[in-house]
Design a protein around this nucleic acid. Structure first.
Lengths: 110, 110
DNA sequence: ACTTTTTTACCCGTTCTCCTACCATGTTCA
DNA sequence: TGAACATGGTAGGAGAACGGGTAAAAAAGT
C-alpha cells in the first residue's frame, strides 16, 4: 500500500507529518489520510511533490524497494539517512563544512 | 508531459486509443484528453492500468527513459562529496547526530 | 503532575479525475 | 450513393481528490 511507504520514508527523513506536508505544499489532512490508507489513489503530481522532498523516486513509493543497494555503493545507507535528515533540517553546506573542519582538528588533538 | 509518452508507447504497441482504453478498463474520453494534454494529472491507479497493458513501468510514463541515467544521485552531488569527506575523516555517526540536534535547535531559536 | 508537540479526526469547499453517454470525421464495403 | 464501422473528440455530471481549518486525542518533554 502506498500509505505505509510514504510514512516509512517520512520517518527515515526525520520529518513530522506537518513538516512534510508544508514542504511538499500539500494538505496535511490529505497526507494523513493517505498514510492511514483512507485515501489510496493519489495523483502523480501529489506523489511527485512528496517524493521530491524525500529525495526518492515515485516508484519507491509504488513498489517496495526493500532490496536496497546492489552492494558497492560508496555511501552506506545509515549515512544516507543522516544526510537526508540534515538536508531537510535546513543545515547549510557551510555549517556542515565548519563542523567537519572542527572535527578533523579535534581528532588530530588526541 | 505525460500525454505525449502515453501516446508514444501506445503507438509503439500498435494500439488504437479505443483499444487501449478498453483493455486497460479506462474511459477513452479521459485517455484522449490525457494524450492531448488537456488532462495532466492522472491518478496512479489510472497509470497502473495503462502501464500494465503497455508492458511498461509507471516511470516510463513519468520521465523520458530514452536516456537511461546511471542514476544513484538521490542525494545531490554536493552533499555526497561532503558525506564522503566526513566518513573518511573519521567522524562518527554519533558526533554527526549531535551536530544535527544542535543545529535543529539553533534554527528553532531564530 | 502538567505543558507542548505530534498526530488523528472531523468539518466543508473547491477542483479535478474519470465516467457514460453522444457527435464528427473519415474509410470501406455494397 | 449509401449504410456500417472504426477512430478520435465533445459534453455533462457523479464522485473522488485535495486544501484549509480546527479541535480532540495521543505522545513526548519537563
Amino acid at each position: 500500500m502506498v500509505g505505509e511507504r510514504v510514512k516509512k520514508y517520512r520517518k527515515e527523513a526525520g520529518l513530522t507529518l506537518t513538516e512534510l506536508a508544508d514542504r511538499a505544499g500539500v494538505a496535511k489532512s490529505y497526507l494523513s489520510a493517505l498514510e492511514r490508507n483512507i485515501q489510496t489513489n493519489p495523483s502523480i503530481q501529489f506523489l511527485e511533490k512528496i517524493a521530491a522532498v524525500l529525495n526518492i523516486t515515485i516508484d519507491h513509493l509504488l513498489k517496495d524497494m526493500d532490496n536496497m543497494e546492489p552492494a558497492g555503493d560508496d555511501i552506506d545507507t545509515e549515512w544516507r539517512k543522516l544526510v537526508l535528515e540534515a538536508m531537510n533540517s535546513g543545515v547549510s553546506k557551510e555549517e556542515f563544512r565548519d563542523f567537519l573542519e572542527y572535527n578533523k582538528w579535534k581528532i588530530n588533538q588526541k
